[in-house]
Amino acid sequence: MALAAPFLVLAFVTFLLPLGSLLHESLFLPTPTLAHYERAVTAPVYLRVMLRTLRIAAIVTVLALLLAWPLALVMARSTGLKLAILVASVLLPLWTSVLVRTYAWMVLLQKNGVINQMLMASGLVDEPLKLLYTETAVVIAMSHVLLPFMVLPIYSALRGIPDDYSRAAQMLGASEWATFREVIFPLSLPGVTSGCLMVFLLALGFFVTPALIGGPQQMMIATLVSQQVREMLDWSFAGALVGVMLAFVLLLALIFKRAVRLDRFVGSA
């Protein structure tokens, strides 16, 4: 416990204390009230922002999963230099600032950016497409930034599956598709669920990428909280928004915990 004390103190000072202060303001300033929470969950404009945040987070999670699973499978079946190159390709974005990666996407997606220039040069379009400041741009950029958080858990799960399982299934007459469906994918589910939860939760609180690449119509909850604090100076309502999203995240974590327990129970039955 003593070894963990510095971390616990740091977590309390930098996370729990500010969060508790913000939630206290949302409930007790100027007087004890739930009006800020009622406003957060009933006003149509704020409901749209929350639903948009959930929708974008869900789309990013699905897209990251579709991109990450095949890549993780190739990594799990690779060795030597090929594996080193793949791992470096996944980890390299984590060593680059999110702000730098976001500006890179802005260069690619802007009206006179690389993608529009390529499309016009190939004759596919006659005029530049509006790619920047759209929900599609936000989803693509967020998926790129969060992809490593999906790849690594799935790769770890696939790496732990013995090759004997696939060979045994094929010796018993299973096709490659049946082996994947009945053996490989079910055994990778712990990594899939961990990666999905991590990406979804990170996407819910994403700030830099949606703020720079998305327009006012793509505002997400983190941008809304920042707007309430920096422009409206309404700390109490900002705390209510944080409280609503915190309650949702805790509920999701509890559901995930129950699902993992159920998966272990079924696996041991």
Rank of each mutant, 00 (worst) to 15 (best):
E182Y: 13
V125P: 08
I213P: 01
M120I: 09
A253F: 07
G123Q: 07
L132H: 12
L108W: 14
A253Y: 08
W69Y: 10
E38D: 15
L86A: 06
P162I: 12
A269F: 03
F200K: 13
Q170I: 07
L81M: 00
V62S: 03
T79S: 05
M142R: 04
L34R: 01
G243R: 02
F180D: 14
L132N: 01
A168Y: 14
T79D: 12
V151I: 04
A43H: 12
L158I: 08
A168C: 08
A35H: 07
I213K: 07
G215R: 10
N116T: 09
I115Q: 09
L152H: 13
Q218D: 13
R181A: 12
L67I: 02
P210N: 11
A11P: 14
I161E: 02
V100E: 06
A35L: 15
A269C: 10
F265R: 15
M150Q: 04
K82C: 07
A157M: 11
A57K: 07
F149R: 00
R77F: 03
M232A: 11
T96F: 01
L27D: 02
I221S: 15
A222P: 12
P44W: 03
S194I: 08
L129V: 06
S78W: 00
V74A: 04
T96M: 14
L71P: 00
V266C: 15
V229R: 06
A40T: 05
S143F: 05
A238M: 08
C196N: 13
P128L: 01
A57F: 10
P93K: 03
G239I: 05
Q228H: 09
F256W: 11
R230E: 12
V138D: 08
L17Y: 09
L187S: 07
V60Y: 03
D126Y: 14
P44E: 04
V100Q: 01
W105P: 09
H144I: 05
P210D: 13
A4P: 04
L172Y: 09
W235C: 06
L132A: 00
V125H: 08
G20Y: 04
L109K: 08
R258K: 13
P18E: 06
L241S: 08
L17D: 01
L212R: 05
L254E: 08
A240I: 15
R77E: 15
V107N: 01
Y165A: 11
E38H: 05
R101T: 00
G215V: 09
W235L: 13
A259E: 08
L16N: 12
V87F: 11
H144Y: 15
N116Q: 04
A137K: 02
S194H: 10
V229W: 10
L172S: 09
M232E: 07
P153I: 11
L233P: 01
V125G: 11
S143T: 14
V242T: 04
Y155P: 13
T223D: 13
Q170P: 03
G205M: 02
Q170W: 07
T193A: 02
T14I: 10
T79L: 06
A4V: 10
W95P: 12
V266I: 14
S89D: 00
F248G: 06
L47S: 03
Q170T: 08
A168S: 07
G80Q: 01
V225D: 13
L51H: 04
Y155T: 08
